[in-house]
Computed example of a mutant assay.
Amino acid sequence: MTADAAHGQEWRFRRLLEETAIGYVLAVPKSQRVLRFRRIDHLFTQAPDGAWEKRSCGDGGKGPRVYHCAAVQLAAIEDFGSDKPTHQRWALARRSISRPDEIAYYLAYGPVGTGIDRRVHIAGGDLPQSGGHL
């Protein structure tokens, strides 16, 4: 599931998706609170240059869309009715290579083992369209 920041910032919406085991990559505003009231942009402003990796977000009308991307795995969550976590939460940031001040932020949730490249590719979709699957 993908959605724009208006939906992505709504914790009740994210919780509903998690309760029904629907993976998501949701855009959020830079002021989105994560990790005990810390803003999502603060997670990435302190990141060393090595945390940002050049990744493809898929092909666009003018060829490959490549950005610098960084990801932070968020604290483990208790799965609903499971002894062992089956899903993980992530914070993602996608930064323009030519304009590094342009950064998009995302919260993601999906099965353990889902690669960062898959999440980045979904985040690179034309939001707010739905239908990207983790």
Results as ranks from 00 to 15, higher is better:
residue 38 R to Q: 12
residue 44 F to S: 01
residue 122 I to N: 01
residue 14 R to E: 08
residue 101 D to Q: 10
residue 56 S to Y: 11
residue 93 A to G: 03
residue 132 G to W: 08
residue 13 F to C: 02
residue 72 V to I: 11
residue 59 D to E: 10
residue 120 V to Q: 00
residue 13 F to K: 02
residue 12 R to I: 14
residue 78 E to R: 06
residue 39 R to N: 07
residue 62 K to E: 15
residue 50 G to A: 14
residue 62 K to L: 15
residue 121 H to L: 15
residue 133 H to D: 12
residue 29 P to A: 06
residue 83 D to K: 06
residue 59 D to S: 06
residue 89 R to K: 13
residue 41 D to E: 14
residue 81 G to E: 12
residue 58 G to H: 12
residue 109 Y to L: 05
residue 109 Y to M: 07
residue 105 Y to W: 11
residue 66 V to A: 02
residue 106 Y to I: 02
residue 40 I to L: 10
residue 4 D to M: 01
residue 68 H to V: 00
residue 14 R to C: 10
residue 87 H to M: 12
residue 92 L to T: 09
residue 130 S to T: 15
residue 32 Q to C: 13
residue 38 R to S: 12
residue 26 L to Q: 01
residue 44 F to E: 02
residue 41 D to Y: 13
residue 116 I to V: 15
residue 120 V to P: 01
residue 83 D to H: 04
residue 39 R to H: 08
residue 67 Y to L: 14
residue 101 D to W: 13
residue 130 S to D: 14
residue 54 K to F: 01
residue 90 W to S: 06
residue 123 A to M: 09
residue 65 R to D: 13
residue 76 A to L: 13
residue 69 C to M: 07
residue 46 Q to S: 08
residue 56 S to W: 11
residue 70 A to V: 05
residue 84 K to W: 06
residue 112 V to D: 04
residue 41 D to T: 04
residue 55 R to E: 13
residue 84 K to H: 09
residue 22 I to F: 03
residue 69 C to E: 03
residue 45 T to N: 11
residue 64 P to M: 10
residue 93 A to E: 05
residue 7 H to E: 10
residue 9 Q to L: 09
residue 39 R to Y: 12
residue 62 K to A: 15
residue 15 R to M: 07
residue 23 G to R: 03
residue 62 K to S: 15
residue 37 F to K: 07
residue 53 E to Y: 01
residue 120 V to H: 08
residue 16 L to I: 05
residue 132 G to V: 00
residue 49 D to H: 09
residue 48 P to E: 06
residue 130 S to C: 13
residue 74 L to Y: 03
residue 54 K to T: 15
residue 117 D to Q: 15
residue 35 L to P: 00
residue 129 Q to F: 07
residue 118 R to P: 00
residue 3 A to E: 06
residue 6 A to F: 09
residue 8 G to T: 02
residue 118 R to L: 10
